[in-house]
């Protein structure tokens, strides 16, 4: 115990802050992941089917959606936070705490999820879609049975990348008052020069990222036939 107090004195002193920070980070990760998937996946489907070479080509919808996704992908996340502070206040009546983080996190992540899911679906060979058309499947049936089901490993791989990126963004929203591990690192590790806190936060983030990666790899293996 003595050696620990020597090595990481501040971490010991403020150890009561860590559980909450970890929980906040995990909640932000989970909520952002789920909601972004629920919005991003349908967007990806619409992009894939309305493409010029898709099963229901529609130039207008494709063009607008495609550009929209690109636009939001291009905005740096740190700019997204102030940009969205008004809608955030309007939805949650607050711009501090964990709730304020959801709007920028989700808005920033949805286009990323959409692109990842789109490329997973694009990996399905064209011939498989054609075979399905030739079997008399309707566009909706093709979406359900082919696009959504035939490259699940690719989708999981995409989501793994997304979630790891979200960890980084959660750390950023922490700096503007959303809580979580990033918040600890900034307020204590940086502003009060408590380096040991920074390193322990870093270590915890690496653990979370490794777990995401391991679970992702395991699921990919489970779903690859």
């Amino acid at each position: 115990m003595d050696t620990l107090t020597n090595w990481i004195p501040n971490v010991i002193e403020y150890s009561n802050l860590f559980p909450q920070a970890i929980v906040d980070t995990l909640i932000m990760l989970f909520v952002t992941g789920v909601i972004s998937l629920l919005i991003g996946l349908p967007l990806a489907i619409i992009v894939v089917v309305t493409k010029p070479e898709g099963i229901c080509p529609n130039k207008t919808i494709f063009f607008i959606l495609d550009k929209f996704i690109n636009l939001f992908r291009a905005i740096p996340f740190v700019i997204l936070i102030p940009m969205l502070s008004d809608p955030t206040r309007w939805i949650f009546h607050t711009t501090i705490g964990i709730k304020m983080a959801f709007v920028p996190l989700i808005v920033g992540t949805v286009p990323f999820v959409a692109r990842q899911m789109e490329s997973a679906m694009e990996e399905i060979p064209e011939g498989i879609v054609e075979a399905s058309i030739s079997m008399g499947m309707s566009p909706w049936q093709i979406v359900r049975h082919v696009y959504l089901k035939q490259n699940i490993p690719g989708m999981i791989r995409g989501m793994t990348i997304v979630l790891i990126a979200v960890i980084g963004q959660i750390a950023i929203v922490g700096t503007v008052g959303a809580g979580g591990l990033g918040d600890l690192a900034i307020r204590f590790g940086w502003q009060r020069r408590m380096n040991d806190i920074t390193y322990v936060v870093l270590f915890l983030l690496l653990v979370i990222i490794s777990i995401i990666q391991m679970v992702g790899d395991w699921l990919v293996k489970k779903t690859t036939h």
Binding site: E130, S138, K149
Partner: peptide
């Protein structure tokens, strides 16, 4: 479109690269 899908069910097709659903 509906009639066409109905007809397609009566026209089977096979391909050089099989195109089976991998999952």
């Amino acid at each position: 479109p509906v009639e066409l899908r109905k007809s397609r069910k009566k026209i089977g097709m096979i391909f050089q690269h099989f195109n089976l659903l991998p999952a």
